[in-house]
Simulated assay, not measured.
Amino acid sequence: MYRCAAGVGRTTLHKRYPTRADLVRAVASEALDLVDEAISGVDLGTDDAVDQLIARLVPLGPRVESCCGSRTCRTTSA
């Protein structure tokens, strides 16, 4: 799944991330960094803070959705 999204072959992926756990940690870390950066750019003391958060976080959806895993997302939304 990840190698298809990254557009790289299995060999390249395994050279960089020898185990699945290494890959998952790297993906999760990047997702958390993206969310942290988006949130830190919002002035939470303003009246439009929620609008700013939505404007910054919604576009990240496709980039961070892999971190929640399809099973987790389905069970939480059900």
Results as ranks from 00 to 15, higher is better:
residue 64 V to Y: 11
residue 9 G to E: 08
residue 26 A to F: 04
residue 29 S to N: 09
residue 66 S to E: 10
residue 60 L to R: 05
residue 74 R to N: 10
residue 66 S to W: 13
residue 45 G to A: 11
residue 66 S to Y: 11
residue 35 V to S: 06
residue 61 G to S: 15
residue 36 D to I: 00
residue 74 R to T: 12
residue 54 I to N: 08
residue 12 T to I: 04
residue 74 R to E: 15
residue 6 A to H: 06
residue 66 S to A: 10
residue 38 A to W: 02
residue 11 T to H: 10
residue 9 G to N: 11
residue 52 Q to D: 15
residue 49 A to K: 05
residue 71 R to G: 08
residue 70 S to L: 15
residue 30 E to F: 09
residue 21 A to L: 11
residue 76 T to L: 14
residue 36 D to V: 03
residue 33 D to L: 09
residue 37 E to M: 02
residue 75 T to H: 15
residue 10 R to A: 08
residue 71 R to K: 14
residue 34 L to I: 00
residue 25 R to A: 15
residue 51 D to A: 14
residue 13 L to N: 02
residue 52 Q to Y: 03
residue 69 G to P: 11
residue 9 G to S: 07
residue 41 G to R: 15
residue 5 A to G: 08
residue 2 Y to V: 02
residue 44 L to K: 11
residue 44 L to T: 13
residue 64 V to M: 00
residue 51 D to R: 06
residue 36 D to T: 04
residue 21 A to H: 09
residue 67 C to K: 01
residue 15 K to W: 12
residue 24 V to T: 07
residue 1 M to C: 06
residue 47 D to Y: 01
residue 56 R to V: 02
residue 46 T to M: 02
residue 68 C to G: 10
residue 58 V to R: 09
residue 53 L to T: 08
residue 60 L to E: 13
residue 69 G to L: 07
residue 18 P to M: 05
residue 13 L to K: 01
residue 37 E to N: 09
residue 19 T to H: 12
residue 5 A to Q: 10
residue 75 T to L: 15
residue 3 R to T: 06
residue 7 G to T: 06
residue 69 G to D: 10
residue 6 A to R: 04
residue 14 H to V: 00
residue 23 L to R: 00
residue 54 I to G: 05
residue 18 P to C: 04
residue 61 G to R: 12
residue 37 E to Q: 12
residue 15 K to A: 12
residue 35 V to N: 08
residue 59 P to N: 07
residue 7 G to K: 04
residue 50 V to E: 12
residue 39 I to G: 08
residue 24 V to W: 07
residue 63 R to F: 08
residue 22 D to V: 01
residue 8 V to W: 10
residue 24 V to I: 12
residue 37 E to C: 04
residue 57 L to C: 11
residue 57 L to Y: 03
residue 46 T to G: 02
residue 8 V to Q: 03
residue 55 A to F: 13
residue 35 V to Y: 13
residue 38 A to M: 07
residue 56 R to H: 13
residue 40 S to P: 07
residue 25 R to H: 14
residue 46 T to C: 03
residue 38 A to E: 14
residue 75 T to E: 15
residue 22 D to Y: 00
residue 33 D to P: 00
residue 5 A to W: 05
residue 57 L to S: 12
residue 47 D to R: 00
residue 42 V to W: 06
residue 58 V to G: 03
residue 30 E to S: 07
residue 15 K to T: 10
residue 78 A to C: 06
residue 20 R to H: 06
residue 36 D to P: 03
residue 56 R to F: 01
residue 73 C to P: 08
residue 4 C to V: 12
residue 68 C to F: 14
residue 15 K to V: 12
residue 27 V to S: 00
residue 50 V to W: 02
residue 52 Q to S: 14
